[in-house]
């Protein structure tokens, strides 16, 4: 029996971001952009979607005169990711 995959995670860029954030304590916008090879605009939109679902927290701070955007995964996000992987297994096993 196939289990439904979370539509918020079942997208290339959002899943990549969540996979990175699950492996670190926090990551900044530039690092996520480099690792996912995405555009700033697209990444920003996807981060907003994940943040709105309470999967990640996005914090903006200043380093000197530059703004720095840092993201970390929440407990809800971690649980959603683990559930996604568990559900994904049902597809692979069949």
């Amino acid at each position: 029996m196939f289990k439904e995959l979370d539509p918020l995670l079942h997208s290339q860029l959002r899943l990549a971001v969540m996979s990175i954030l699950i492996s670190v304590e926090s990551a900044d916008f530039v690092f996520l952009k480099q690792q996912t090879d995405s555009t700033a605009g697209n990444l920003s939109v996807q981060l907003d979607k994940l943040s709105a679902a309470d999967y990640i927290v996005v914090k903006k701070s200043f380093v000197g005169k530059k703004t720095r955007t840092t993201c970390h995964i929440t407990k809800t996000g971690r649980e959603a990711f683990e559930r996604y992987v568990e559900n994904l297994k049902t597809y692979i096993q069949h």
Binding site: H10, L13, S19, T39, N42, Q46, Y91
Partner: peptide
């Protein structure tokens, strides 16, 4: 990378690649 739907095999590959990198 961009915003697009993926199949289950691609999902696994993305997760594995990102975590390993």
């Amino acid at each position: 990378m961009e915003e697009r739907n993926i199949n289950e095999q691609e999902s696994l590959e993305i997760i594995a690649t990102m975590i390993e990198q």
